[in-house]
Every structure is written in structure tokens, then in C-alpha cells.
Amino acid sequence: MNRKIVFATLVALPCLTTLLPAQADENYRAKAIAMIQKDFKPRGQADLDRLAEDGVQAICNRTGNHPPEALAKTLEADQMASVKWPADGKLMGDWKKGESLAQSGRGFTWSDKPGLPVGGNCYNCHQISPKEVAYGTIGPSLLHFGKLRGNTPEMQKYVYTKIYNAKIYNLCSEMPRFGRVEALKPEQIKDLVALLLDPESPVNK
């Protein structure tokens, strides 16, 4: 089932992208891509393959991050189909581990040592625990998240999948696909779910 969907997307994407309304000026866009292709060199763990758009990126780039709704729905469903779940089936881990993971902004740059654990980067963009005042504002505030949204199995599943792959709910979300690109392992995502939803977490105090 999964494989079929992935395959269908791979085949369909090139066709779809040619049919899309061209928001970006195609001429300049083509020239920009050609320029990027020749002007970079690999460094550390950052190889040149990072310059190529994958399907989701191509569509978001092509439509100014506003893909046609039907297409977005299909691709969002694809992203959902590729989620990997924790081995023990539980979606809540340890909020304390989640908090230190949320603090770390390390990972994936050419100056990061490959193989070292990648940080969650959460505070770069979100307010989370009331104790941390040095938070970014690119994403919405998550203060009191569990208190406001509850801690039901559905909510746990939503938070797990949102962190695993934010594009499931909003194809051109600015948030990275942490699970999909294997920045974060299912165990780590569980700890982040706990940070947001556990009644004992400072987020909900």
C-alpha cells in the first residue's frame, strides 16, 4: 500500500508540476536553479544533492507555497502514509528529555559533525516552557499546549505526526519534516510529545 502511493507520487509529480499554475516567473526560476546548480560545493555532511527539490519542495516553490487544494490533500495523505511509529506503540515519552532536545539547535549544517545527535530546534521558532524566555517567533506559541488541547490519544497522535512530518497537515508548512528526514527518531519524538502534553511538564503548569 505505502509503496504504491510513493510510486504513484514519484510518477505523478513531474506531470503535475508541468500542469501547475506558474506563480514564479518560469524563465527566472529556471535561471535561478541553473545558477544554484553551478555555484555550490560540498562541505562536511552537506552534499550537493541537497540542492535538488524533492516533490513537495518543487510544488511549494512552484506555487509560492500555495498549492492547489486537491493536490495538497493528495500529497499530505502521502506524507501521512510514510510515518514510522514507535516500536512499543506508546506516543508519550519523557518530558525532561524532550525539554533538552527542544533546546538544542544543532544538526545537519556543514559545521555539525555527522553522526552526532540532531537537536529538535524547537525553541528557535516556538515559545514552549514558561521558563525559557529566549524563544523564537517563526512558529506559533505552544505555551500551555496540553492544558489547552488535552491529552487524549487523538491529540497524542496529532502531535506525534505533526512533529514527525509537519507537511501532513499543511503541505508547505515552514516547519521541517523531522521524522521523515530522520533528524529525530520515533523515541525522541515521543519525548517531545510528552513535553507538550504531559500534565507534569512545565509547559502545562
Binding site: 535561478a32 536553479i33 527539490e53 519542495q57 545537519f108 507537511k167 528526514v181
Partner: peptide
Amino acid sequence: EIAHYRAGPYD
């Protein structure tokens, strides 16, 4: 165009 070009592991 380059300023709006999303790619890489974090999009």
C-alpha cells in the same frame, strides 16, 4: 527566486 527557493533536509 533564489531567496524563495526551498530545498535541503529542512525545506
